[in-house]
Design a protein around this nucleic acid. Structure first.
Length: 423
DNA sequence: TCTGGGGTCCTAGGACCC
DNA sequence: TCTGGGGTCCTAGGACCC
């Protein structure tokens, strides 16, 4: 028998910070999104204070002060590195392993009968090892399908007696848990579906799983149908969720302040494009379509507002920053309007293909090979000497538009100067 | 003052074809 | 009153995820 597991770090970003700063243990701690905008991770103590996921920081300033909540800006360097360490540890113990997000990974045991002393105990051992090696607490859910494993995982988290691991191993247990499982906690049910389902009197996962198939399909498309099959123990999702190459790459952080100057927006756009192209090259891919968009802050009551977006198809897929920039610049010019306070510019790359599978076109110019050589040299130098040491001039040196990070934490594992010293 | 970023999949409807 | 039928492709937008 095959069993699917999902391991999920508890309060991941907060746990990363606590791993290196034990003083934070037992305290309310939150981690913020880019620009210190919203809450994206909360310690259990912070959750108890009623701080919600995604809540803007300015709405909870009083709570933060009153309860001495420890606040930290995002630190993707640290979080990404800790993610690699947690996954690396787990991978030693399971055969099939599929990272799903920065803090979650699915895995599978093709047969578990031989596992001694049993699947759950073995997973508890994995969990203890991850904790010992990284100080990141994880929870593990086990079941026949990915959706049920997610349910089991959530159950493990909220029931301490499970010791971090829960297995939905029989149909009886499955129905018993689904009967107590609210639909809004299901994987694939968001706010819209939740409200609409409740209007039809559907509140639990068990109720949902017993609805007629044609009704579900009409109501929630085939995704809903897949969901209820999965709840019944029939796998409909593929574990291999990580596609060979991404379908799109988007880089679009908001500015740290309002920007009205074309030259500033252009520098930001060139910088984002360089990021996107680096990512393309890391994946060994090239993009066939570039999109640039630009907008004002939609929360701003006093206008005027402007939203612009334009795309262009390239004559051949490219991953060269300089070449892509040649196509992106006219797009920005086309959507630019004077006299607005812009909040964000963004770059999206689409029609992404693996470099080695690129179609050769008969009539179009073939790509200039010098672009690729140049990109490779730039990547190598920057890898050695630091990001953006070598860059296109269009990226500029101003950077006044960069995101705000008022509550930075050290990069404990990736910067020499930030490594902890033992005295 | 202050409201994230980066993805995926699906559907409806329009344009167009014979 | 009544205006074919059966396709494909593309795009915008909605829903979801972490």
């Amino acid at each position: 028998m095959r069993v699917i597991g999902i391991a999920d770090a508890n309060n991941f970003y907060v746990s990363c910070l606590r791993s290196f700063n034990p003083k934070l243990i037992g305290q309310p701690v939150i981690a913020l999104s880019n620009n210190d905008g919203c809450v994206v991770a909360r310690s259990n103590e912070a959750k108890k204070l009623g701080i919600k996921m995604g809540q803007p920081l300015y709405q909870i300033q009083k709570k933060v002060a009153d309860y001495n909540v420890q606040v930290f800006s995002s630190n993707y360097e640290l979080f990404g590195d800790m993610s690699r360490r947690v996954f690396g540890t787990m991978q030693r113990f399971v055969g099939e392993f599929f990272p799903y997000s920065v803090d979650e990974a699915f895995f599978a045991f093709d047969s578990y009968e031989h596992i001694d002393p049993g699947v759950e105990e073995f997973c508890r051992f994995i969990r203890q090892t991850v904790d010992q090696w990284t100080r990141i607490p994880i929870s593990i859910g086990l079941a026949e399908t990915m959706t049920l494993a997610k349910v089991a995982n959530k159950w493990a988290k909220s029931h301490p007696e499970c010791q971090g691991v829960f297995w939905l191993d029989t149909p009886e247990k499955r129905d018993e848990i689904l009967d107590q499982f609210p639909i809004e906690d299901l994987w694939g049910v968001g706010r819209q579906y939740q409200e609409r389902l409740k209007r039809h009197g559907i509140k639990t996962a068990l109720q949902l799983s017993r609805m007629p198939h044609d009704w579900i399909q009409q109501f929630m498309t085939v995704e809903g149908l897949r969901l209820i099959y999965e709840l019944q123990g029939i796998p409909c999702r593929s574990l291999d969720t990580e596609p060979l190459h991404k379908k799109s790459i988007c880089v679009a952080p908001s500015f740290g302040r309002k920007v009205t100057q074309y030259s500033t927006v252009y520098e930001a756009m060139a910088t984002y494009l360089a990021r996107a192209a680096e990512k393309l090259r890391r994946h060994g891919s090239a993009a066939g379509v570039v999109t640039v968009f630009l907008h004002t802050n939609r929360f701003d009551r006093i206008g005027p507002h402007h939203y612009g977006s334009q795309s262009v198809a390239l004559p051949h897929p490219s991953s060269s920053t300089t070449e892509l920039l040649n196509y992106a610049e006219p797009l920005l010019k086309a959507i630019w309007r004077d006299g607005y306070d812009f909040q964000k510019v963004g770059v999206i790359l689409n029609e992404i293909v693996p470099v080695e599978h690129q179609q050769k076109l008969i009539f179009a110019d073939s790509p200039d090979p010098r672009y690729n050589v140049l990109s490779q040299v730039v990547d190598r130098l920057n890898q050695k000497h630091g990001r953006d040491k070598l860059r296109v001039a269009a990226q500029g040196y101003d950077k006044s538009w960069k995101i705000k990070q008022r509550y930075q934490s050290p990069c404990y594992t990736t910067k020499w100067s930030d490594i902890l010293t033992v005295k």
